[in-house]
Design a protein around this nucleic acid. Structure first.
Lengths: 318, 318
DNA sequence: CTGAAAGCGCTTACAG
DNA sequence: CTGAAAGCGCTTACAG
């Protein structure tokens, strides 16, 4: 019976038919647990994410799910919420249930990253320390370079008074983006760039906007740690009667779908989120299928400025 | 060894310690497949969704993941993309891997809904035919009533020329929302309400906006099938120089997080998405833990109008 | 309190 | 081409 259902070796035609008929009549589906126990493979991949809210993750998941489904893999998703304690239990809970792991953990400190080496793992947007890279694939994108690019663009538009609304504390990607901001200003010889506490949600941007409204002189260019933050900022500023981009230019980060549909459209740094989801799964698939391929991936994807309508030249500089 | 790790019966203290020490030294984690094979339970729940993109799903997943994690259940997620063919394979692929199923399938035709009755299932926002309801929990929300409410609100503001931008073809929730629109206009004796083809994404709203711009006379009130559609509509209309809400009022559906941060803020129908995710998992948990409880849930959650700034009274009626 | 055995549902050599 | 057996890693009665 196993032989006909799995098409694993020659079976007499009449028996094959009888088995097939019986199977479909009973609605027989092989128990995947029994199968994995024997075959040492589960047909699943685990995704360990800091959380699952917002368009960044839904895009990432969409890309991942598409490729996984095409290859008949299921996705086991676990949000660690960034806490190191939950992190460990998340890893453990998926351990033998999947054939490989996608890990996105921007908030986990490198030394805590003690995964068992015996399961293929691809890290996405995670700070993987050099000594842990040997057995592992790493996909990142150029966080610092992105912000640097945005600052340079604004400098060319004549901006000189900059403000940066930072991402959440402890997230490595947020830190890199802030670093890019500082570096770019430094090279331009600008010493009074302001960095404000922020976060990755609309509310964080709105809060920062209040502070910006009180600043005197006000910055003419504001960069935000991500798009949601930029969008919250934009709305709050507009609500206070500020003209964007007339008085203030704004640039976000990620190029989330909503960014194209704000009014005005948000200028932002484009990260190919969905493609990253696809690539991560494709890579993991390869690792699972060819466990002895010694090659490891370590890429940093470029980030590209997407110019829309929240940015404009500074005409008169006070 | 099994006895000490599972704390299943009394064991001599010295042996217990020796086992525990060895287990942690080796980093031993029991194989969940072997365990489920025997125990007939997996510690997982499956989520069958039409897709995973956008804030509606990310909110739903966030609610679900929170409760699942708190109860040490893992989530197996599968997006069927609405196609009936993929639907069947999705159901089958999770079949024995999880202890219960959350199913959201607004696009699946009722007759196709042939789930095996032997796994606890809670349906969310899915048209479950009466005869299939016996073994199953159903959580819905008042799609038609929501739109009706919105139309009545606009009528009170003096609007008489209405337009509805519909959701995707074949989705029952979209159909219900459109029905609410028609019903409300009928009761008000308004016969010239326009229904435009649309969808659940920004782009669909933007496309519909083009058509609205060509209409003469133009509607003063536009309802959209969901928030993304409304937001796309809003932006496109604004881009064409239309004053919202000065010339046109807009109402969305869902009250997705972004809706509060458009400019102007989107008036919409509030669906407690995250709470629905939590409730669905809680209910499934109950079903899994008490398999012989004969009670079945069948609720329709209310939808509440959230008034923000895309709606205003009609001052002069042509 | 604790060995040894049976069995969960499958697949895969092993003999015919 | 096809039975019958072994074994994947666990848990749980069953005897002591």
């Amino acid at each position: 019976m196993s032989r006909v259902l799995n098409n694993t070796c020659a079976v007499a035609e009449d028996k094959r038919l009888r088995v097939e008929k019986a199977a479909s009549a009973l609605g027989y589906v092989p128990n995947p647990n029994a199968r994995s126990l024997l075959m040492k493979s589960t047909g699943g991949m685990g995704m360990l994410l800091p959380h699952v809210s917002g368009e960044f993750f839904s895009e990432f998941l969409t890309g991942a799910d598409n490729v996984a489904k095409d290859n008949d893999f299921f996705l086991l998703i676990s949000a660690s919420h960034g806490k190191a304690s939950e992190w460990r239990s998340s890893v453990q809970s998926v351990y033998r249930r999947v054939d490989g792991l996608i890990v996105m953990a921007p908030q986990v400190t490198p030394k805590r990253l003690n995964l068992s080496q015996d399961i293929p793992t691809v890290f996405v947007n995670t700070p993987v320390p050099e000594r842990d890279r040997s057995g592992v694939d790493v996909i990142g994108f150029d966080n610092a370079g992105g912000t640097r690019q945005a600052v340079e663009y604004l400098l060319n538009l004549g901006h000189r008074r900059f403000c940066y609304v930072a991402g959440p504390e402890g997230a490595f990607d947020a830190a890199e983006r802030a670093k890019g901001f500082r570096e770019a200003l430094d090279s331009a010889g600008i010493r009074d760039g302001v960095i404000l506490a922020g976060g990755y949600n609309h509310e964080d941007g709105a809060l920062a906007a209040r502070k910006i409204l009180e600043m005197d002189p006000r910055p003419t260019a504001v960069l935000a740690a991500n798009d949601y933050c930029a969008l919250g900022l934009l709305t709050e500023l507009q609500g206070a009667g500020v003209d964007v981009p007339g008085e203030v230019s704004i640039i976000g980060f990620d190029n989330v779908p909503s960014a194209a549909f704000s009014a005005p459209g948000l200028t932002t740094l484009g990260v190919p989120i969905r493609e990253i989801g696809e690539k991560a799964i494709e890579r993991l698939l390869h690792r699972i299928r060819r466990p002895d391929d010694p090659v490891r991936l370590s890429v940093e994807l470029p980030v590209n400025l997407v110019v829309r309508d929240t940015t404009a030249p500074v005409l008169r500089q006070q």
